[in-house]
Amino acid sequence: MKLEVKELRKSFGDKEVLHGISFSIESGKALGLLGRNGAGKTTTIRILMDVFRANSGSITVDGRPFHPRNFRIGYLPEERGLYPKKGVQEQLMYLAQLRGSSRADAKEQSMRWLKRLGVEEYAQRKLETLSKGNQQKVQLAQTLVCDPELVILDEPFSGLDPVNSQILKDVIQEQIEEGKLVIFSSHQMSYVEEFCEDIVLINHGDIVLSGNLDQIKREYGRNRLVIGLGPDYQEPEQVLRDYMGDLLRIVGSRKDQVIAEMKEGCTREFLLREFLERKLIPEEFGNYEPSLTEIFVEKAGDQA
């Protein structure tokens, strides 16, 4: 299954908030929708879920128009909410049945997910009597109870403690391995890096970066090196500027390492030879691979 979003535009009143969003994703992969607050991630997801209608653009699955009602979709909205005064399993079964499961399947699946998430002892309890963390697990259970083909999670890690975050990470990883199509939005780049093959970075309603995460990182690391001079050098950046300034431009640092960009015409082999000739022996010398956070800040952080 391949989901394609093309040129989505959406306005609220006179203000256009999405200026032509396009991306695609296939089953068995996870797509991370990244962006700052108000970038347009939730609006994009709500258009996907048919909560909002786009002003223009198209969404297709395997080339056919996408209608959410025709698919089993597990959706975790940004605005979390269930029935506080209803029993946990009762409402999970209700939501599963609304999404097409039979009563027997709904009962089996709801108990399976409650067990998987470690809250099966609360199955008959009212939701409002559970702790916040356990309520979040029930929210996740409602997302997956219908055995979805598509899993759409809007800020799933928001408000989760480290233990629950780990559970959620494991569950999302399982879904990907089971061949589900997973889309999720997040500010938390570390999670995105862990299981997203593809990312879409939205900023002020525009896609400013998209594609395969590894390729993006490689692209960003091209011509950039990580150089460590060792503990003998107190100011490695200054030393590199002094010794190698004609060949390298210093762009940043990570602890004791310096991130430097090779100037035009310079190659790694040539640079290594020059280090040796100039009697400056680096302890570390390698390709620079940026973190997603660094890419995010560079792409979206300058327009604050």
């Binding site: 048919d50 909410g81 269930l82 029935y83 506080p84």
Partner: peptide, 9 residues
Amino acid sequence: NRAIEILVT
């Protein structure tokens, strides 16, 4: 109770 978004979808 904010269940509406889950329901309408």
